[in-house]
Design a binder for these strands. Sequence first.
DNA 1: TTTTATCTACGAAATTTTTCGTAATTAAAT
DNA 2: ATTTAATTACGAAAAATTTCGTAGATAAAA
Lengths: 124, 124
Amino acid sequence: MNLKPTDSELEILNYLWSEGPSTVRQVHEYLATTKEAGYTTTLKLMQIMHEKGLLERSEESRSHVYAAKVSETETRRGLLDRFVETAFGGSAARLVMQALGNHQASAEELDEIRNLLNNLEKDR
Amino acid sequence: MNLKPTDSELEILNYLWSEGPSTVRQVHEYLATTKEAGYTTTLKLMQIMHEKGLLERSEESRSHVYAAKVSETETRRGLLDRFVETAFGGSAARLVMQALGNHQASAEELDEIRNLLNNLEKDR
DNA sequence: TTTTATCTACGAAATTTTTCGTAATTAAAT
DNA sequence: ATTTAATTACGAAAAATTTCGTAGATAAAA
């Protein structure tokens, strides 16, 4: 499937991935903490996402309940591939290094990454 | 400076970063290998980027020569920050791991990354 | 010199994404 | 029972991005 959600769509997906199936109201409340936008804007976005197959919904109750229909990791992989390509000229290593340089990561996370590195070298 | 080049703009920046100051013609020839678009489209894009301050240009010769005015690393940092935020919910570690999992990296690159990890833990 | 090709500037069309207003419906509150 | 509030559907406006056509200028070729 050709997945490339827009930025707005991604905000919604992030919420649904972490909070599970939710109503437009819930999503909107959350988005409202960050940005200014009317309720119908969020509604419309989610309806479009539903048409596109990004979300599924239950119409049991009057307030429809939406859930992400695309997987978190699949979607992120697609986004990452594109991003590595367009923003880092295809070099994942460059991206990784800049990411580690810019951002804070906990000791545990660093350990995890180190393990991953070891496995990658082993499988070579 | 508030840098968030669009995807098309990024393609052009990538070229200029790697090839140095170039004419619209050169950039266009390159882009044409990838996608369909008329010459004036590329021209217009670069003119807009010039207005925005993303590019500078010399008008010495009839064919203007454009160069990136924003730095590669600065721009990439900005893009990466935003990307970590929107696509990976703020977790750089998650991004790093997925990037390493998805993409091929050479042994040398893996070593570089390992060194970086060591330094990060030392400075903690 | 005349013609042909190339380039810039510019406006505007086309496309994509985001935003909102309105009407109709349903549920809840009074 | 009536009113008030919340919800969906829908169209369309607004904004941002991308694309292109045309006119005018300059250089190169014939």
